[in-house]
Structure formats: C-alpha cells, structure tokens
Design a protein around this nucleic acid. Sequence first.
DNA 1: TGTTCTATGCAATGGAAGTGCATTTTGGAA
DNA 2: TTCCAAAATGCACTTCCATTGCATAGAACA
Lengths: 144, 144
Amino acid sequence: MTQKIEKLLKDQGVRPTAMRILIYKYLLEKNVAVALTDIENAFAKSDRTTLYRSVKTFEEKGIVHQIEDGTGIKKYALCEDGCNCEIDTDLHLHFHCSTCNETVCLTEHKIPHINLPTGYTAENVNLVVKGICDKCSSQQKTIR
Amino acid sequence: MTQKIEKLLKDQGVRPTAMRILIYKYLLEKNVAVALTDIENAFAKSDRTTLYRSVKTFEEKGIVHQIEDGTGIKKYALCEDGCNCEIDTDLHLHFHCSTCNETVCLTEHKIPHINLPTGYTAENVNLVVKGICDKCSSQQKTIR
DNA sequence: TGTTCTATGCAATGGAAGTGCATTTTGGAA
DNA sequence: TTCCAAAATGCACTTCCATTGCATAGAACA
C-alpha cells in the first residue's frame, strides 16, 4: 500500500516523504473533499504550513484538484485515474451537503456543455449542488 | 428614481435609509456582482459594518442574492424582477473573468436540470464559469 | 414629547490563506 | 561512506475578509 503510494508520488514528480504519504493515505480513505483544516486536525503533530505546501504541491503535480464548494473554504480531493482536469472531459459536479457539511465528487456526473454568449471564453467550469446527501437523508428517515 | 427605490425597499420590508438607498443605487448601476470591499471603496465615508449589515438585510429580504464565484470572496448582485431565487426556475449561471476579475450574472442562461444519484436532494445549484469575458477578449483584439 | 425599536459606527475577534526565514532532511555526487 | 546542494519542514508573522458586541444616534409611533 505504502509502496504503491510511494511509486505513484514519484511518478508524478513528488518526493514521497513520510508526511506526504500520510496525507495521501488520508485523502484516499476519505471519500469526500477535505479542507486544509481537516487535514490539520487529522495530523495535529505536523505543522499547518507543511500540510498546506504538501497539498499545494499535490495540486501542481495533478495529484489532487481543488474544489470551491461555495463555503469559501478550499477543499481538496484526489484526482481520478487518468484525470487531466480538462474542460469538457474531466469536469464533474460536486455536491455539498448542508447537513453534514461534506462535499463529495460525483465523478460519474459530467457537467453538461454550457453555451456562453459571444465573446466569452470558458477556461473552467465549476458546478456545485447544495442539498442533502444520501447518508443524511437516510439517517433522517431512520430517526423518524 | 430615488423614490422608486424607496418604495421598492419599503415593499420588501426594509427601511429606506439614506445609506441603503445609496447602496441600492450602487448595485443598480454596477451590472456586475460586487464584493463588500467594492462597496466599501465606493462609500469611504460609511463604516464597513453598516454596509455589511445593509447588504445582509437586502439578502434576507430577497433584494440581492449572494454569489460564490470561486474566488472565496462573497459577491452580491440585485435579484431580477420577480426572482424568487428558486431552484429550476430562477437559477442562472455566473461568469467570472480571470482577467478583469469581474463576475457577471448571465441571467438569460438558466442552469440545465441536474440528475442526482438516488438519495440526494438538491436545494441549490451554483454554476460558475471561469474564463475571459467579452470586454476583455475584445480589448485584447484591439491591442494586437 | 417620550419611549422603543432600528440603524449606525467603532473596536475587536476569528478563521483561513499565504509568506519569509531558519533548520532539518534527503538524495545524489564524490 | 561522507559531504553538499536542493528540497522539505517548522515557526512566526502578515493579510484579508467575515462577523460580532456594545454604545450611540436616529426614526417611528403612541
């Protein structure tokens, strides 16, 4: 496992330090997009700056992508296999649950093509749906 | 003009103070979504808190809507006539220009219906396209 | 006119992102 | 193996924006 991650990081041109491997593992086991603060809380021993810069590096090397989920807090999630973060092919929508406050990547849901007025050029599309996620809505049912 | 705004505010249950009328006028003449800082710069005389709370009140009363354009800075724009900020009817997309840094509401462009996985309920949809706006792209042409 | 509710202004707080610099660690060359 | 240079880490700050508490000014209404 660790070796796989190590190889993966190396392949992307990122030195597989102990901390980075841990961060990668953390992102892997969380299936939601996480904020820097989340990572910080998970690794109280490490400094925020290290985490910040590690994630930044991951982002530059195409290992994670940043998500703006409308909360104003930047979230990060691992890219899918073969993701180039390219417009019209890789862009999926994100769902932000207003109950549990988690943001998930709905990678199978591609963003439909958007027609813009003349003169406008799109470089990036960000689609966030806010509502209640499946976990929260099923919990609600159970309680009642 | 001022009287129209005054009536409009009253109708929405907002006391039409001098400051609020000015803010409303400002939002009206800007056809882009503005940040609190923008309003602050436009009215250096007034306190940031006043502006903050005025806009907040506007938002609560359905006079403006808040926009998350992916910059992490909250933007505000006047609601269209008859806008209820309702899903599937009023939701339009926003365009953020990475050159001039302005965010416009493309109100005529409604967001296509999104199919979510089972268990997910949508309350709100936010679609932001980032790229170059018409003004900036035509300027570029002119320069070259 | 007086009372009460609302709006305003000032000061301060808090959260998150980002930077500069010193120190440690790591990988590779000698 | 040892040493050097580059990269990573940790600490201390800074900045920017959002938000709140409290005291004061102002408006509406009895």
